[in-house]
Amino acid sequence: MRKTTVTLVTCKRIHAHYTALILINPMDQSMTTEFTPLMSLAGGMLIGLAAVLLMATNGRIAGISGILSRLLPPGVDSTGWMQGAAIVLGLLAAAPLYNLLGAGPIEQTITTGYWPLAAAGLLVGFGAAFGNGCTSGHGVCGISRLSMRSIVATVTFMITAAATVFVLRHVIGA
């Protein structure tokens, strides 16, 4: 019981901190963020719960890029379309609901410019659809299935992502 109370207090404190930290600063490349082990672990467990729920009820893998891919042409998945659209709708509704419950505002710091973000979106969409998965499909669901494909994919994108950030912040931005 005591432990639960401590956790809640910590969460509240972090939220108060978040409220003071709503920044959208496109210039600051060295933005620091607070290490949030408890909230991140709790949020991660919710993501896991959602993945198990989707498999238990509908028999589907909670890979977001895969779900999006089946909603889009060419070769739209017409039988599972409504299901996929419902998952996307749920994802979209999460932030408004979170704010409505008074838990917000949600901290967002975007340090990348608009056109680099468009390029990033193109690479993320193409890469995830071409490699059959993203952080959720390979990183969470695939690793949880102990799939060698997903483990290799996750290690690969972690390396290229870290290398990209290194170049952006310490080579170009230095």
Binding site: T112, G127, T160, A161
Partner: peptide, 9 residues
């Protein structure tokens, strides 16, 4: 490719 985009954005 996904990782490059993820790191960038």
């Amino acid at each position: 490719i996904f990782g490059i985009g993820w790191g960038l954005g």
